[in-house]
Design a protein around this nucleic acid. Structure first.
Length: 557
RNA sequence: UGGCCUAUGGUGUAACUGGCAACACGUCUGAUUUUGGUUCAGAAGAGUCUAGGUUCGAGCCCUAGUAGGCCAACCA
């Protein structure tokens, strides 16, 4: 086995350094900590891949932890969706955890902090607290309640906990330093009162911990060794460590937080708030709309777990700002689908052709299922006198670079015969209604005859009209018409919505597709990859276009 | 106006403790092909934000700039 010489990203380097230091392999443990207030998106996939990838690399456990400290925004629906998505991506968590499981422990620690004079109850309004906070360049002022006695703090905190106080009346604050350069160290709020039921703890709690108080301590409880998060949390690190020091006992192993840059993607947004708005405003049909950059959207669109994992791995991880081009994601699906998707024929924009010299009623021809997979076998496809081909595959006349059907010229029908276009039938406006062709019956595919070996430049896909199944086909384009829809400070990102991101048409597909199941993936030869949408019923097949085939001809024309 | 983070081809990442910039996507050629797909062969494209400095030698170290990002939610 060749030794892996691939270079390490900076996160892996941190771990390697720790391993050279006083960390043992056994102590390594990671976590993926989503807040259940929305669906996972492609950016999360990057983080999931990082954490679970490290777990795999170092054979270390990875917990799935729901950061559910805000009952106002969080719901069980999101918990379920997140679990489904992580599983679907192919990862297995060691433990399913919830910050809410630690509410009691957190509360007990908070009492200890109060007793040590490290926390106090502030009874000002949020406006007053904000006003005293200062600015990055101006130090803050201390709250008049900052030096309450321990007894008074304990009594007030108890009242908050028991729901005897109103929302907004009191908060528990850490007593740190109102003049700190780091704004987060200016007596951050640890608890607020919220008379709202929690999706897991119900009405047990009337106070809920803030992120900074809950996150590091949750990492500690679970004995996470490395807590990776995005760069905007870098200033939180000081506070993360401060809280940990307050609860630390001799011999304790403390987790460490390190930060990486979040991934941005071209022609879309990855902010749960902005994605939620697209759903709420009805701009898309739901979190799993195939145009959404959510995991569930990509799944419905026809993306495979492997393609998303490969994508996440190949864009890597670093600390600088970035905008990853969606064409990279598209490359990753094509790469995967090319190996596994059965080839079929479907016509998206039909043009009728009649084989005038075809005498048979019908015949069934053999078609290879996947030239990339020798075990994929073959199937039978029906051929008859009247067929549909793609409208753009015929021109009455065209230059020699047009390798398709033109009057008086020949072309190969995939898996069938070589045909020649003889004449066109048009309506009064000059629109082409049908093309009359003749076929050479000695050119049948796979027949081995000399005529069948003839080289003709073009090969077209087709379906037999009387056998074809009409199907709804949904064609997608990027959701936003500009590369970075949320980069403009003047304009709202919704102004950049691409009005043509969805086109629904009726196409015709070969009869073998009748049996296809939801999420089955196919390559419509010469067009692209498609998968069966969940809206499919016994009466109607619905396909989503995942991505087009690479097209070195189409884009020049 | 403060502090912190970042800066490498069009895009995303590499370059072990300093040794004349690599990989992938994208782009463009050509070959093969019963998918203008795949595969194969090849090409163009950066001299590493700028200016100094240290050094025999700097993308890596130092200094000063410049640009972008983050920080003043009872959100995470």
């Amino acid at each position: 086995m060749a030794e892996e010489t691939k270079s390490l990203n900076f996160i892996e380097q941190i771990i390697e350094e720790d391993l050279k230091g006083n960390y043992t392999k056994e102590v390594l443990k990671f976590r993926f900590p989503p807040e259940p207030n929305g669906y996972l998106h492609i950016g999360h996939a990057s983080s999931i891949n990082l954490n679970f990838g490290l777990g795999k690399r170092y054979n270390a456990p990875v917990n799935l932890r729901f950061d559910d400290t805000n009952p106002a925004k969080e719901e069980q629906e999101y918990v379920d969706a997140i679990k489904k998505d992580v599983e679907w991506l192919g990862f297995t968590w060691s433990k399913e955890c919830y910050a809410s499981d630690y509410f009691q422990q957190l509360y007990d620690w908070a009492i200890a902090l109060i007793k040590n004079g490290d926390a106090y109850v502030d009874s000002q309004t949020s406006e007053e607290i904000a006003a005293q906070k200062g600015t990055p360049t101006k130090p803050g002022e201390e709250s008049p309640f900052r030096n309450r006695s321990v007894e008074e703090n304990l009594a007030l905190f108890e009242a908050m906990k028991n729901g005897e106080t109103n929302e907004g009346e009191h908060v528990l604050r850490a007593k740190i330093d109102m003049t700190a350069g780091n704004m987060l160290m200016r007596d951050p709020i640890m608890y607020r009162t919220l008379h709202k039921p929690h999706h897991r703890t119900g009405n047990t709690w009337k106070i809920y911990p803030m992120y900074d108080w809950a996150h590091g301590e949750s990492d500690f409880i679970e004995q996470i060794s490395h807590s990776f998060c995005t760069l905007e949390f870098l200033p939180h690190r000081e506070l993360y460590n401060w809280f940990l020091k307050k609860i630390e006992k001799p011999g304790d192993f403390l987790p460490k937080q390190r930060e990486f840059a979040r991934r941005n993607f071209s022609h879309t947004v990855v902010s749960k708030r902005k994605l939620a708005k697209l759903v709420q405003e009805g701009i898309v049909t739901g979190w799993d709309d195939p145009r959404m950059p959510t995991i569930s959207g990509l799944r419905r669109r026809g993306y495979t777990p492997a393609s998303i994992r490969n994508f996440a791995t190949s864009i890597g991880i670093a600390k600088r700002e970035n905008v990853v081009d969606l064409s990279h994601l598209e490359f990753c699906v094509r790469e995967d689908l090319n190996k596994i998707a059965p080839r079929v024929m479907g016509v998206i924009d039909p043009l009728k052709i009649v084989i005038t010299n075809y005498e048979e009623e019908e015949e069934w021809l053999t078609a290879e299922n996947n030239p990339e997979d020798e075990h994929a076998g073959s199937r039978q496809v029906p051929f008859s006198k009247e067929l549909y081909i793609e409208r753009e595959d015929f021109k009455e006349e065209a230059n020699r670079k047009f390798f398709r059907l033109k009057l008086g010229k020949e072309v190969r029908l995939k898996n069938a015969y070589i045909i020649k276009a003889e004449s066109v039938i048009k309506d009064a406006e000059g629109n082409i209604l049908e093309v009359h062709c003749t076929y050479d019956k000695d050119t049948k595919s796979g027949s081995g005859t000399e005529a069948s070996q003839r080289k003709v430049k073009g090969t077209l896909h087709w379906v037999s009209i009387k056998h074809a199944i009409p199907a709804e086909i949904r064609l997608y384009d990027r959701l936003f018409s500009v590369e970075s829809p949320d980069a403009d400070k003047e304009k709202d990102y919704l102004e950049f919505i691409n009005p043509n991101s969805l086109e629904v048409i009726t196409g015709y597909v070969e009869p073998s597709l009748q049996e296809a199941k939801v999420l089955d993936k196919f390559q419509f030869q010469r067009i692209g990859y498609f998968c069966i949408d969940k809206d499919t019923s016994a009466k109607k097949l619905v396909f989503n276009k995942t991505v087009g085939l690479r097209d070195s001809w189409g884009k020049k024309n």
